[in-house]
Every structure is written in C-alpha cells, then in structure tokens.
Design a protein around this nucleic acid. Structure first.
Lengths: 277, 277
DNA sequence: CCCTTTAATAGTCGAGGTGACTATAAAAAG
DNA sequence: CTTTTTATAGTCACCTCGACTATTAAAGGG
C-alpha cells in the first residue's frame, strides 16, 4: 500500500511471473499442485479437477449530474433474460484477467482505446460460490473502474446502444446472478479508497476545480464536506493535485471563477482524508 | 471497510449468491456471458472458452521467536521440483475458493479443525497471467491467513513433516511459480491491515500482554514503537482489547508482570494506528 | 453604474491525537 | 538491600482537523 498503484495494479507483475504447476486432465497423478501423492487425503475425487469457466465482471463508476452512476447491460438471453447485469465476459486463452477486463471495458463502453489503456482498474475480489451459475461452475474475477463523465453514453461501440446504460446506483434494481453483491462490494471499496488514495481524480476530466473534486467525495460518500477544510487538506497533500498556472473557469455561471488543477503524481494520501463519522 | 470483517470475508455471502451465466462447451452461441452475438468483435476465438484450472494459494503467517514466519512446502515433482512453494491446491467441484483455502490449510498444517474454522482468512488477489504455469492455464486465488505461534510445527497432519516448514520470511529463497510475488503482496497487505484493523490479535494466543501485541506490530512492520504511546493508543481504541480482570503474567522472567488482555469485539481501528514514517 | 447574490479563497481558534520524553511501580537477580 | 528489568503512569509541545468567520471576484438586477 505504501508506494504502489492505488489500484493495486498487478498486471505488469503478472506478465513477468513464472507459471504454476497445473492439472492435466488425463494425468491425475500430477494434478494436485504442491502436494505429494502421499499427502493426499483419502476419498480423493477425480472430479475435483473438473474444469472451470473463468470470467471477469466490471463495476464501472462515473459521476454524472451529481449522482454516482454505474454501467449496466441488459441481458438478452436466459438465465436472467431482460435483467440488468454488470458488463463482463470470458477470459480468452492467452490474456490475463486484467487484460480481459480492459478489453471488455473497451468493447462494451466504446471508449477510445487510449483512454482505456491508462485507466484506473482495480481488482476487487474473486467470486467463486459453486452455485453462482445454475448451469455450470463459473469463477469470476471482479474489477472496479472509475471513469470521468463521458460525452458519449456507453455502448457507442457499434452495438445495440439500448442494451448498455449508465444507471444511478441509487436506482439500481435487482441484478442478474450475484452482481448486486459485487456492486455493493465495489461501492464499499471505492468509498474506502477515496480515503487513503488519490483515485478521486479518476472521476474528473484532465483539468478540474477543487469544487468538482469535492463533489466526487461528496457523491461517493453521500456526505457534505466543509469547503475550506477540504481545500486545505487537498492542497496540503503533496502530489495530489498540481495547479494549472493562470487558468480558471466559471463554474456555475455566477460567482468567483475557480482555479484549475490537474491530477498530481502521488497515488496515496498521507495522512488519509477520512470521511466524516 | 467500515464495519465488515477485517479479512473481507465473503464466504457467507458467496454461498447465498445466485449463479452466473456460464459457458457450455458445445454451445458456443450461448457462451459469451452478458453480451449479445451482435456485439461480439470479429475474430472471435472459440478457444477463448478453453477451460481453466482454478487453484488457491495460501500465505500463512505466524510470529515465532520475534520473527515473522511463513508456511512453505517443498515440491516433490517437476516443475520446480525441490523448490519451496506456498501451500495450496485445486478447487473441488462443489466448494468455494474460501472453502478450498480453509480445507487446504487444515490438511497441510494439521491444525485442529475448530481452530481453522474461525480463522482470519482474507482473499488477497487472483493471479491469472497466462504463462504462470508452463503446462496449462491456471488461475489461482490467493488467501492470507494469520495464526498464533503453534505448539506443533506445520504438517503434523499425517504427512511427511519434512515437506512443510515454517520459514522466516527474511530468509525465504526463490519460490516456485509466481509465489514470491504472492508472498510479497501478502506481506504488503498484512502490514497495511495492521494499521486500520484489529487483525494483529490473530497472531496472539487467546490471552496476551500488550507487550506481545506490540511485538506483533514491530515484527510485521520491521520498526520499533514507543511502548507508552502504543499502550495509550491500543487502550484508547474501543473494542480492540478487553482486559482479563486480575490476571497477569511474568513476561521474560524479570520485571513487573504484565496485565493480560483478550481480543475485543472490534474489527476496525478508528482512528488508524499508522506505522512510523 | 451600484448593489445584491453567488461561489471561491483566506484566515482563525480550540479540541484532540500523537511523538518524544520522564517518572513510578513491581518483579527477579546478585 | 541494591541493582536490573519491565510494565505502567504522566507530561508537554506540535500538528491536524472540525467549525467558523472574513474577504475576493465574478454575474445579474435595478
């Protein structure tokens, strides 16, 4: 947590990692990684090495009109036909879970590849309950992504735009599979990450005002913050934001124009910006 | 992060979750979860739905003789024959990853089932680099467990005791597969969790002195802490520890006997106990 | 053009947490 | 009995933070 990416991004590490002993379906004697045959418990079940399907699911958040939105996709086929679900899909044969998440995000949101490439993408948790899919065993690696408010709505990428939509998290109804639990976990994690990392700027455009940054915190936390104190805290955190010299923008039309900032080089907040209560 | 288990324990939730749409190997048209056929990119590869093997790996930590130790197992077969590795194994057909981790932990450490059942067990991260196993595709869900210093060394459970050992993390050599990276991630995470959760007591026996608790922090962080200040902080955190009335224990033989405490009901630390610098 | 409104920015003050430090109490060793 | 050792109690300055007030710079209405 000290100096690493706020998203606990491990893809670069993943790629350079050596492989791990694995099952070969017809060679049961060599299947049980890391354990000797002598150590195996009695009742050893060959079905233990049944293959699994592996998917990624994405909780993508943005802030639009002062409300936290998440990207949902309407399912067209059973089970859960007609239900909304998190975007996601299967791992391809030669890609890591993070690569798959990035690919799915690009495909389903139609974001330019350049934007997707350097996006905040954090591995949330892996969901592996045996009955989470009624038809077969599926293990899913969930990721969280934070994006700025997009000029173009989601699913502009060629597909049926009606099938993918930004939905205010407050109005999200029942979701397919265990996606409601994944979404809840993602919300918890995102709120917590705002406290001790600089990821809040991921919700903002390249240049933003401190008022807009504060709105990110207030929207995600569902709390109101004291503006002078928030300002003092952010400016006192080295590397959180860097001022754009001479630049300012009229925020609401009225009032004093606000100075503009860009995201700084820091990824963690020392000390943290704790949410009230 | 607010009131949940410090280990982000999601097993209870997992079990109650509905299943997720999955691949059926002979029904390619229904394989791509959450996406319509119209949305699929060209060059769609049927091998994308190749089955994966899913394993769990365990970074088990304990403190012994003032040093942080981790449980390692010596591999008996290639690849990496003779190398040390983290304990772990394959998911069985009808168990969640957390259940598998708990089962593997019980099998490989020989701990009493009762102890394993209510153990701190936290999902760390999922490792999915395509080349992490030279023979086939293996996705591994890594867990971290913190245990008190065990009277009996590891692998007392029937097997070849020479194949499993507590090893000081400072002297861990090269490990099999990407286990060195997993171990490093687990160390990072454990150090960070000590700051804002109460998991440190997981390293201690049921009754412990504040000096022993402080040693946990000092050992994991590799730093020395001021004793009066540590004491003040711990006692000021409601629910972190509860005193055992009238009980005391001679710690080193010499000196004033220390009061005994048990772990309290709290799981998170407000405000956090930040490590120095 | 002046005055009001609105929002950003600057500054103040006290409570509380924390680091560094000193002092006392209770045990064993000599 | 004295020394040593370790737990425990207490002190003090600094720094952060929450709550609050004051000033500045824009738009809008008369």
């Amino acid at each position: 947590m000290s100096t690493g990416s706020p998203a606990h991004d491990g893809s670069a590490r993943d790629v350079s990692r050596a492989g791990r002993l694995a099952a070969e379906r017809l060679d049961v004697d060599r299947l049980d990684t890391g354990r000797l045959a002598a150590e195996r418990p009695e009742g050893y079940d060959p079905r233990a090495f049944e293959p699994f399907a592996v998917t990624v699911d994405l909780a993508v958040f943005t802030i639009r009109a002062g409300q936290l939105h998440t990207l949902l996709i309407r399912r067209g086929e059973p089970p859960y036909a007609g239900r909304w679900a998190l975007p996601g899909g299967f791992l391809h044969a030669r890609e890591s879970a993070e690569d798959a998440a990035r690919r799915e995000l690009a495909e389903e949101t139609g974001l330019p590849d350049a934007l997707v490439a350097d996006l905040q993408l954090e591995q949330l948790r892996t969901y592996s309950a045996p009955d989470r899919d009624p038809r077969m065993r599926v293990v899913s690696v969930a990721y969280t992504a934070l994006v700025p408010d997009l000029p173009e709505p989601a699913a502009s990428g060629g597909g049926d735009a009606d099938q993918a939509r930004w939905t205010p998290v407050a109005t999200v109804g029942p979701l397919a599979f265990d996606h409601a639990a994944i979404l809840a976990d993602a919300l918890d994690r995102t709120g917590a990450k705002l406290e001790y990392t600089c990821v809040a700027t991921a919700f903002c455009p390249p240049e933003f005002t401190l008022g807009e940054l504060q709105q990110v915190y207030e929207t995600v936390w569902g709390a109101t913050l004291d503006r002078p104190n928030f300002r003092r805290k952010v400016l006192a955190s080295p590397g959180f934001v860097t001022p754009v010299p001479g630049a300012s923008r009229l925020t609401g039309g009225r009032g004093k124009p606000a100075a503009l900032y860009r995201r700084g080089p820091a990824t963690t907040l020392h000390p943290p910006l704790l949410r009230p209560r």
